[in-house]
Design a protein around this nucleic acid. Structure first.
Lengths: 202, 202
DNA sequence: TCTTGATTTGACCATCTGGTCAAACTCACG
DNA sequence: CGTGAGTTTGACCAGATGGTCAAATCAAGA
C-alpha cells in the first residue's frame, strides 16, 4: 500500500480499473459470489497486485458502495420544494428511470445488497437514506396539504417510484424474457409517466 | 439415495426439512453465499446425511425453484377473463401483495436469482412465465378494447404490479429502515389499491 | 427375533479462495 | 545514469467448501 501522499498516475489508473471491474463482478454475482481473482483478471491485474491497492475484498466492496450511494441518491436530492410539484416529481421519476437504463450495474449492486438484508450498508440506510427521505417527504406532504397533488402516503409514494424504476434494471432478464426484442425503456417511460400523472392529480 | 419406490415416512420428513432449511438459507444468502453445511445444520442433519437425500447443492436449489415457480405464478393464473375487469385486477394485486407479506423468503429467492441474471431458471422464464403472461395480457388487451379499463401497455402494467408488490418483500430492510415501526403492509395495501383504481379507470 | 434395506455418520479428499511475502522489476527524478 | 520509492508477481498458506465412502446404526416386515 502506497503512502498517503497524492496518488500517482498508476495508482489512479489501477484503482479506477479495479472499481470498474468490481462493479461488473459484484453486480453480477453478489459479494460472496464474486472472487478476488475474477475482479483482478477483469481489471487486468494479478491478484496480489490488486491486493496491493485494496487491503481486502471487503474493502473493494465498501469503497464501491459508499462511492455509489452518493450518485444513487442524487436524483432525490434535486427534488426542489420551490418547483412545480407535478413537474418536480415527474422529473425525479424520469431521472430514476434514466439511471436504471444507464447504470444498471449500480442498481443491481444495491439490489444484491438489499435482498440479502444489507449486511454491509445497514448503517447508511438508517442514517443517510432515512434522513434524505424524511426531508423530501416533508416537501411532498406540504404539497399535499396545499392541494397541489393528491393526498397519498408519502413514504409509499417514494417506495413506488423506486420499485417501478429500479425493476427494469434489477430484473432485466425477466423483463426481456417477456418483452422479447422490444426495448423495455421505450414503453416504460410513457407508462410510468401516465401512471404518476393519474395518481398525483388531486 | 433410496430406490425410486414410494418415499418412506423418514424420506418425506427429511426432504421437507431440507427444502425448508434451504429456502431460509438460499433466500438470505443467494446460491453461492449458501453453504451445504449451513443448510444441513438448519435442517437438523449432518452434511453427508443431507447429501444422501439430494445429490448436490445445485439439486436442492433446482428442486426448490421449480417447486416454487408454480406457487409463484398461481395468482396470475387465477385472473379470470369472465370476471369484472377492475375487480379481477385488484384481486390479483391483493393476492400478490399477500404473497409478499406471507412468503417473503420465496420472493427473495426469486429476486436473488433474477438479479444475478437467472442463470438457473432462464429456461422457465422464457417458456412458462412468458406464455402465462402472454395469455393474461391478451385478456387485459381485450378489456382495454372494450373500454372497461384504461388503455395501457399491458406488459408494463404487469411489470408494475410485480414491482410494486414484490418490492416490499425483496427490499424489506430498506422499507423498514425508512418506516421504522410502522407496518409496511398496513400502508401499502390502500396505497397500491388507490394507485390502480386511478390508473385503470378509463 | 432376525434379516435386509434404509439411514446416519466420522473421516477424508480435492479444489477453491482470500490473503501473505519476499524477491524482482519499473519508473521518475536528481 | 543511479537510486530509492513505487509496482508487480510467483510461490505459498490456511481455512472453507462441495462432495465421497465405508462402516455403523436403525427400522419394519416376515
Amino acid at each position: 500500500m502506497p503512502k498517503d501522499r497524492a496518488p500517482t498516475r498508476i495508482q489512479k489508473k489501477n484503482r479506477a480499473a479495479i472499481l470498474e471491474a468490481a462493479l461488473n463482478v459484484f453486480s453480477a454475482h453478489g459479494f460472496r459470489g464474486a472472487t478476488v481473482d475474477q475482479i483482478a483478471t477483469e481489471a487486468g491485474l494479478s491478484k496480489p497486485n490488486l491486493l496491493y491497492y485494496f487491503p481486502s475484498k471487503e474493502a473493494i466492496h465498501t469503497a464501491l458502495l459508499s462511492g455509489l450511494l452518493e450518485i444513487w441518491l442524487a436524483p432525490l436530492h434535486d427534488l426542489d420544494a420551490d418547483g412545480d410539484p407535478m413537474e418536480e416529481i415527474l422529473a425525479y421519476i424520469r431521472r430514476k428511470l434514466e439511471m436504471s437504463r444507464d447504470l444498471p450495474r449500480e442498481s443491481r449492486l444495491f439490489a444484491n445488497e438489499l435482498v440479502q438484508g444489507a449486511p454491509r450498508i445497514h448503517e447508511s440506510l438508517s442514517h443517510d437514506l432515512k434522513s434524505l427521505v424524511d426531508e423530501k417527504t416533508a416537501i411532498l406532504t406540504q404539497w399535499m396539504d396545499q392541494g397541489k397533488i393528491a393526498r397519498l402516503h408519502p413514504y409509499h409514494l417514494i417506495f413506488s417510484i423506486w420499485a417501478l424504476t429500479q425493476h427494469y434494471a434489477d430484473f432485466d432478464v425477466q423483463v426481456r424474457a417477456i418483452l422479447g426484442d422490444e426495448d423495455p425503456f421505450e414503453g416504460a417511460e410513457p407508462f410510468i409517466d401516465t401512471l404518476y400523472r393519474k395518481l398525483l392529480t388531486p
